[in-house]
Write a protein that binds this DNA or RNA. Structure first.
Length: 499
RNA sequence: GGGCGCGUAGCUCAGCCUGGUAGAGCACCGGCCUUUUAAGCCGAGGGUCGCAGGUUCGAAUCCUGCCGCGCUCACCA
């Protein structure tokens, strides 16, 4: 543990103070406040003999014998308080000196005046403890910088670092704006209905990933936390909800990095009677809209990269992209040894063995070497069919699928698909996946008979997408770690958190 | 799991290379101070230098092992 508020001396002293207040018959945690103005509202009033009552968290107290200055901070901002012995009276002054400390919550009433340094300040006539704080926050000036402490004690991080709070307020606004835009029937890409689908699945489907497992006692049933929203959404489309989306948490049992958290938020969206070209245009319009709403501009900054979103977004096929890099034409139809030879150094540089299946091999090379180079917005199209078991193959090239992925700032943001709606073909794809699973690929999909049943009831031509909300928020707020856009990221539990 | 780095007062860190009984700032406690902005001034307390072993007359400092944490790579839509 590494935090100022962990000093046992300080904690004990503060507990004693809380008890001392109680012993005088005053509740250090009173149930009601008399606030008339937020900090910002009080500042807007200007100088005034009419008293205001403001509340907030107490900042560093500058005590000078018989008077003191401090700030009260609330969500709207902060306002300074001047508290003087001969105005509040001897008793209130003594209690102030003895009881009130950094990080407590307090209420102050008085008129507004301007100090000689020009700051509008409440001149306290009276004050009241609203909540005694046992563990003080680090002083603002020193801040709370240690990453581990910040993530483990996010409440302290939020309280001490306004810029951190601001990122999460932006996250909320971005998601809210996304919902409004998708639901709005007044534009080409609107009119979507938000649904809620199960988090617990009997068969985890819709993506290639390892799931978390759990168990339902009454049914004696092993269950999995969902790794995607896809299959239920398609069942909604079968049922006649032609424009459907969900913003929901999904769970993948895999590593943690600056771009991966085991639980994260995905926006999936499905549209009947369109193909992947429509969804690409929707994606472009949505992200430009959100950038405009949140940042007031179409330029975003991520790390040391400045990314313009308003330029036309590049479209390039996966194979073309790899060919550009290795100088030879590649295609999933080529046998693996030939591909390896053509890929040259893209293969040699790796310590880890690459997969033999040509589609997987190409995908792996792309992910390792090319993904991070895609800084300007880029649609990478035509992924191999073998790595896209739920996607319609291209009619003119059956080894490629109508699957596009959007990259911005080197981040994989969203896959888009023309969905496979032929139940016979889907069954074959599942069987292929089952064979891969038996051969040891524990990310391969499992046969989902309920889903096949749905397709047999008829799904219109449909396109879908899955947008990683956390990564989108990273992009729009300029954060380079996913942990800085997830309030409570998963961490290894602390040893001996005894107190 | 691999690589790199860190672990000294409640916090941030110096001291380690070149071994000689532990330092600073802030916080905390006491005193002074009625327009301050990390207020200021004076004073006091506080550390088995991550743990264990080794080398040495002597180890925070050199060596070995272990533990914890961070970054990164790998794993991973």
């Amino acid at each position: 543990m590494s935090e100022e508020s962990q000093d046992p001396k300080v904690i004990a002293l503060r507990r004693e103070k809380a008890e001392a207040i109680r012993a005088r018959g005053i509740d250090p945690y009173p149930p009601r406040v008399e606030r008339t103005h937020t900090a910002a509202e009080a500042l807007a009033v200007g100088e005034s003999t009419e008293p205001v009552t403001v509340c907030g968290r107490v900042g560093p107290i500058r005590l000078m014998g018989k008077a003191a200055f401090f700030h009260l901070a609330d969500a709207s901002g902060r306002i300074q308080v001047y508290l003087k012995k001969n105005i509040v009276g001897d008793e209130a002054w003594e209690h102030f000196k003895g009881d009130l400390e950094l990080s407590d919550f307090a209420q102050v009433t008085g008129p507004l005046f301007t100090t000689k340094t020009g700051e509008l300040t409440v001149e306290a006539r009276e004050w009241k403890m609203l909540a005694k704080t046992i563990r003080p926050l680090p002083k603002e000036h020193f801040g709370l910088k240690d990453r581990e402490t910040r993530y483990r004690h996010r409440h302290a991080d939020l309280a001490a670092n306004p810029e951190v709070r601001e990122v999460f307020l932006q996250r909320s606004r971005i998601i809210s704006a996304m919902r409004r835009w998708l639901e709005d029937p007044g534009h080409e890409f609107g009119g979507y209905v938000e649904v809620e689908t199960p988090v617990m699945h009997t068969i985890p489907g819709g993506a290639l990933a390892r799931p978390f497992e759990t168990h339902h006692n009454a049914l004696g049933l092993d269950l999995f936390l969902r790794i995607a929203l896809e299959l239920h959404h398609k069942r909604c489309v079968v049922g006649g909800i032609e424009r459907v989306f969900e913003i929901g948490r999904i769970f993948r049992n895999e590593g943690i990095s600056t771009r991966h958290n085991p639980e994260f938020t995905m926006m999936e969206l499905y549209t009947a009677y369109v193909d992947v070209r429509y969804t690409e245009r929707l994606m472009e319009a949505l992200i430009k809209h959100l950038a405009q709403e949140n940042n007031g501009s179409s330029v975003v900054t991520l790390g040391d990269q400045t990314i313009a979103l308003d330029c036309p977004w590049r479209r390039v096929s996966l194979c073309e992209l790899i060919s550009e890099r290795c100088g030879a034409k590649v295609h999933p139809g080529m046998p693996a040894p030939e591909l390896r030879a053509l890929l040259g150094s893209l293969v040699d540089a790796d310590e880890k063995p690459l997969p033999d299946e040509p589609g997987h091999l190409l995908l792996e090379v792309f992910e390792r070497h090319l993904e991070e180079t895609l800084v300007a917005p880029t649609f990478v199209t035509d992924f191999p069919k073998s790595v896209s078991p739920l996607v319609k193959a291209r009619r003119d090239d059956p080894l490629l699928a109508e699957r596009t992925e959007l990259y911005i700032g080197g981040l994989e943001l969203a896959p888009m698909y023309t969905e496979l709606n032929d139940p016979a073909e889907q069954r074959l794809r599942f069987e292929e996946q089952m064979r891969a699973r038996e051969a040891g690929d524990d990310e391969a999909m499992r046969m989902d008979l309920d889903f096949l049943d749905a397709l047999e009831h008829g799904m219109p031509p449909t396109s879908g997408l899955g947008l990683g909300i956390d990564r989108l928020v990273m992009l729009l707020t300029g954060q380079s770690s996913i942990r800085d856009v997830i309030l409570f990221p998963l961490l290894r539990p602390e040893i001996s958190p005894v107190d």
